[in-house]
Simulated assay, not measured.
Amino acid sequence: MSTHSTVGRKPAAPAESSGTEAAARVADVLLLFTGGPRYLGVSSISRELGLAKAVVHRILQSLVSREMLATDPGVSGYRLGPAAVALGASALRRFDARTVATPVLRRLRDETGETTTLSGLVGDERVYLDQFESPREIKMTVDIGRRFPLHAGSSGKVILAFLPADRQEALLARELPALTEKTITTPDDLRAVLAETARDGVAVSLGERQPGAGSVAAPLFGPDGEVHGSISVCGPQYRFTPDVVARYRDLVRAAAEEIRHDWAWLRESGGAEGR
């Protein structure tokens, strides 16, 4: 039978499908290491992803052989390896928004005296990509690279508010776990907050993602007009009084617009490719 015939090509579809599924499993395993415990074992990964332990073990061994994951003597479980760290560092260097956001977020940190952050949209979650810490003794800091759901906290809500309606509704249809007692977990209540956020262009959180933490965030739009992340000012909740929050709203909104403008200019000038 000729391998170029129509009949000869049809049996390849299941293999292609199987290959896609296998690649997705590998990606899902790697993504688990971007949040939660530093070390993960076969059993915990198996439970989280609903995969057989034998399948998880094969994936882990393959990733270890390519230094995407590693093990340590005397420690049970796997951690991210040097190849994964290098890949993450390379991605950060190539993220245009991080380049243009750096001076703006530093200035915003100096203007407010609070920590400023940059988050990126990754799949259906967000990840902190950078932070500029407050010089104050009592301050808030974030975990770079850790994943968070979009419904909890100002940085996530402001991204969720500007996603396409169908994608937003799909996320609201999922379970909305409470990270604190102030996390909004009712879809209708969250829809009302998101509508207000979309009108105002800014989201506020007072203890929704982390107890005792306050934050004000604005969406970060890319040159394509889509929301790609957010920036925020964050600190101890007791310092986020109504007057302070009102001031931060204007500052964060203006900073996000400056980053959007500079990002578009960077793309148009070809500067991103030369970095």
Results as ranks from 00 to 15, higher is better:
Ser76Lys: 10
Phe162Ala: 03
Thr34Cys: 14
Gly74Asn: 02
Ile184Asn: 05
Pro73Gln: 00
Ala22Gly: 08
Leu87Cys: 12
Ser134Thr: 02
Asp72Ile: 02
Ser269Cys: 03
Ser5Trp: 06
Val75Met: 08
Gly19Pro: 04
Pro11Arg: 00
Glu169Ser: 09
Ala83Lys: 15
Ala86His: 12
Leu31Ile: 13
Ala152Leu: 10
Glu16Ser: 00
Leu63Thr: 03
Cys234Trp: 01
Ala13Met: 07
Val142Ser: 08
Gly41Ala: 03
Leu171Arg: 04
Val127Phe: 04
Ala70Ile: 10
Leu30Trp: 04
Gly35Cys: 11
Ala27Gln: 14
Ser154His: 08
Lys182Phe: 14
Thr112Asp: 03
Arg174Pro: 08
Gly19Val: 01
Glu268Met: 09
Pro187Gly: 01
Thr34Val: 13
Val142Asp: 10
Leu32Arg: 13
Thr71Leu: 04
Arg107His: 07
Ala84Leu: 15
Gly123Ile: 01
Gly145Lys: 11
Ala170Val: 06
Gln61Glu: 13
Glu137Cys: 00
Ser65Asp: 15
Gly207Lys: 11
Leu30Phe: 05
Ile138Ala: 10
Leu220Thr: 05
Asp28Ala: 14
Val75Leu: 07
Asp189His: 14
Ala23Tyr: 07
Ser76Cys: 00
Ser17Asn: 04
Gly41Met: 01
Leu30Pro: 08
Leu118Cys: 06
Gly274Arg: 13
Gly156Asp: 10
Arg167Asn: 05
Phe148Pro: 09
Leu150Arg: 09
Ala91Trp: 14
Gly156Asn: 09
Leu87Pro: 04
Ala97Met: 11
Ala173Cys: 10
Ala52Lys: 13
